[in-house]
Every structure is written in C-alpha cells, then in structure tokens.
Write a protein that binds this DNA or RNA. Structure first.
Lengths: 227, 227
DNA sequence: CCATGACCATACGCTACCGTATGGTCAAAA
DNA sequence: TTTTGACCATACGGTAGCGTATGGTCATGG
C-alpha cells in the first residue's frame, strides 16, 4: 500500500514536494491526541497517517517527547489566540462572558482535544500546559466579572466557579453526553446556567421562591466556529 | 500502600504462598487505574505488584478485558453504596446536598480514581459505567432539589448544574490544583459555590448588588472518610 | 496413600512501539 | 555536471505487554 506521492513541483518558492515540516508533525500529533489521548501520539502510526515513515520524523524531532512538547506548545498558543480573538469583539463585558461560555461549551462538545488533554493531565508536560492555560483563562473571566462591578475577591471566586462549570460541562458532554439537553433545550440550559453564574449575591437562603427565568437576554448563538 | 502478605503456614521453609481471588485482582486493578488510568491495568505489572505471576491471573480471568469489566463493576456498586450511605444520615435535604457536595469534592481531591475513570471515558466499558453512575447521581441530586421545593424541570436543571460543578471541581483539583483555594479558603469557596447553587431564581439581572454571604450555614466538614 | 483438581510458575510466541543506523533521492548550489 | 545537504526509506535491535501451553504444588476426599 504505497502512497502515490505527487511531485507537483511548482516553479518557485514553496518546495511543493510532499516534504513535511515539524509543524505538520505537531499538528498531526494534536489531531491524534484529540482522538486517542496522549497514548495515541505514537511515531509509527503518525507516520503511516502522514504517508511517510519514521525516517522523516526522526529528522525533525529528536524523540517522541520533543513531539509532544511541540504539540502542546502549539495547542497552548492557538488557544490563547482564540481567546484573544473572542475578546476583541464585544464591548459589553456581560455579553463577552456569555459568548465566551457558550462558544466554549459548543466547541468542547465538538472538539475532543481539550478533554483529551485533561485526561492526560498525569503527564507533567500536559499538566504544565494545562496549568498555564487554565490560569490565564480564569484570570480573564475574573477580569470580566470585575468589569461587571463585582469586587475583586468575588470576581475571582466567580471566575473560578464559571470555569469549573465550563470544565464540568465539557467533561459531561464528552463522557456522558446523554445527560445534557440537546437542541433547543441545550441553549435554554446554558442560559439558565449563565443566569445563575451572573446573578448577584446577597439573597441567601434555601427557600425556593421560584419564578420564571426572564428570557430577556438569551445567549443562543448556534453558530459553528473556526479556529 | 501494599499490604504485607501473611504466609499462614511457615513450617516449611519458603514454600507456603497466599492464594488470590478474582476480587483481589479486581481491587488491584482499581487501584492501578486510580494511579495510571486504564492503561495501567496491565496483567504483568499487576501480577508483580501482587507478588504473583500471570499464571494466577489467567486462572481467574479469561483475559484483560474481563478484569477491566470486573473492576468497573466493583467500582460502580461501591460508589452506589457510598452514595446511599450518604443518603441515610441527614433528614434535611438542604444539608444533605451540602454534605454530598462537600464530601464529594473532598474525596475527589484525595482519590484520583474517579478522575482517572473520566479520563478513560474513551473506552466503551468505562463510558457505560460512567453513564450509569452519572445518571443515578444527577437523578439523586435533582430529587434533593425537588424535595427543597423546586419544580421538577428546575430541579433537574439544577441537579445537572450541581453535578457539572462537582465534575469541574474534581477535574481542576486533579489537573490544576493550584487554581483552587486551599485550607480555610477552600471551605469558604465551597460555601459560596453552594450558596450560588441553592439560591432561588427569579432575580434576573447582571447588576451586582453585592453583599456579604451570610455564614449561617457553613458546610465545613474537614473529615476523612472511608469507602 | 494416592488421585484429583484448584491454583500458581515459567517459558514461549506474538504484536506494537521506540530509537538507531545507514543508505537512497532530489533540488539547488558550485 | 558534479556535489552537497536536506529529507526520507528501510532494516535492525530492544522493550513491554498479551495470551497460550504446560508442568509444578498442595489440600482434600476417596
């Protein structure tokens, strides 16, 4: 089963032969990681998938660990950029937080990479990357809460809770998707969650004086996104 | 750590060996799973750890899959019993929910087994076990909310949110423990989270009319528990 | 007292993967 | 045109684990 390698040599610049770069390998590693976790980042299967052999890999990387590190680095920066891209749009911090949460959960439901990384947190490199990204994200969410008028410690606490909720949601949507509402009900659920996360504190008590959640600021954005 | 194997009858040099049961293997598998995930449930390392050989294992089990299934079954029922044990104590549903949440998060922080299982949710057997346990737990929490007076759909929604929060918290405490407050601050954080999860709905709005969280019903129970 | 069967040890072949060694190919530089 | 060096193919040896085969040991019942 030899691959038909097309040698379409463009006359200029981009050496259009099927030669690979270290980044190609890192991307493939990330993809494999999303599908099978850290253990799926294996040189020989990746080589087969890329239509090449180990000879190529060991030219670009000293060993498998180096590949893992490169992949994590790539993930980390791409995620940071994605978050920053989210930031730039909305002027209203409340709407920013809503969009952040909704798009984050949507993406987590589709893309297993993030959950896979969490699942591989036993590895110290993965743990380090996760720690950096997590800190940055929680800090960012806390800043949004602060912008909304919450005092610093309360903003920090709520940022942590919001991110905790996001993580749990991502976990559920991947491991036990049946528990989560689907379709319209999903957006309604997310709205209710956001309502809970944003509701001001102060009315302590367990007695449920329950009324309808007023649907004035729905956050349903059923949009597919790219990264 | 590993227990000292008592060799009951030592009248003859070093001949007398301890015989194992299938349950011993299942327990060892669960322990290994907590430490290294599903991949750590490997016959030969387990045999070494148990001070025996593969010969013993393949007497009690047909193959590795059978061991995994047995271990999961054992986990599932032990967890169910644990939850039921929690149930029986408190008469007040609000306090039950608090204790459930606090003890759950405490245990998750100490025992990596649950997080490891989540990390191995790619395996269909693990996914099935997780699905059963998750459904039962969410149902139980929702029932507590219902007992507190929330209407059925709201109780369901809040049960899901509470469990989502638990999962995210467990995940964080394992993967990025630095983000979570420690010591006293942890209990305060948990109290605040519970306050948020139990607060009645209805006061929609983003404007933070923030006051102090009244510390009338603290849920600090720094107790070690057994399973 | 020996025969049986439950239980364990050991040796073997198999697969998947890691990493090395070494030679092949091909575009561009010399 | 020859040479160079970046890039890839292939063969090799090593390790870890799965599963099988087969024989060893020991308690108990006949």
């Amino acid at each position: 089963m030899v691959m038909v390698r097309e040698r379409a040599r463009e006359t200029r610049g981009s050496g259009a032969r099927q030669r690979l770069t270290a980044r190609d390998w890192a991307d493939a590693a990330l993809a494999a990681m999303g599908e099978g976790g850290l253990a799926a980042v294996a040189v020989e299967p990746l080589a087969a998938r890329l239509g090449t052999t180990k000879g190529s890999f060991y030219w670009h990387f000293t060993n498998r660990d180096a590949l893992i590190e490169a992949a994590l680095e790539r993930w980390e920066e791409s995620r940071t950029e994605a978050v920053i891209a989210e930031l730039a749009e909305e002027p209203d911090p409340g709407a920013r937080l809503r969009r952040l949460f909704v798009r984050g959960t949507h993406r987590a439901a589709e893309d297993p990479l993030e959950v896979s990384l969490l699942a591989s947190a036993a590895d110290p490199r993965v743990a380090a990357a996760l720690a950096r990204v997590t800190d940055r994200r929680i800090g960012h969410i806390a800043a949004l809460y602060a912008e909304l008028g919450f005092p610093e410690d309360e903003a920090q606490r709520r940022g942590l809770l919001a991110y905790t909720t996001y993580l749990g949601h991502a976990q559920l949507s991947h491991a036990v998707p049946g528990t989560l509402p689907a379709g319209d009900a999903r957006d309604r659920h997310l709205d209710a969650v956001l309502e809970t996360l944003l509701r001001p504190a102060g009315t302590t008590g367990t007695s449920p004086d329950v009324r309808e959640v007023s649907p004035d600021t729905r956050a349903s954005e059923s949009a597919a996104e790219r990264g």
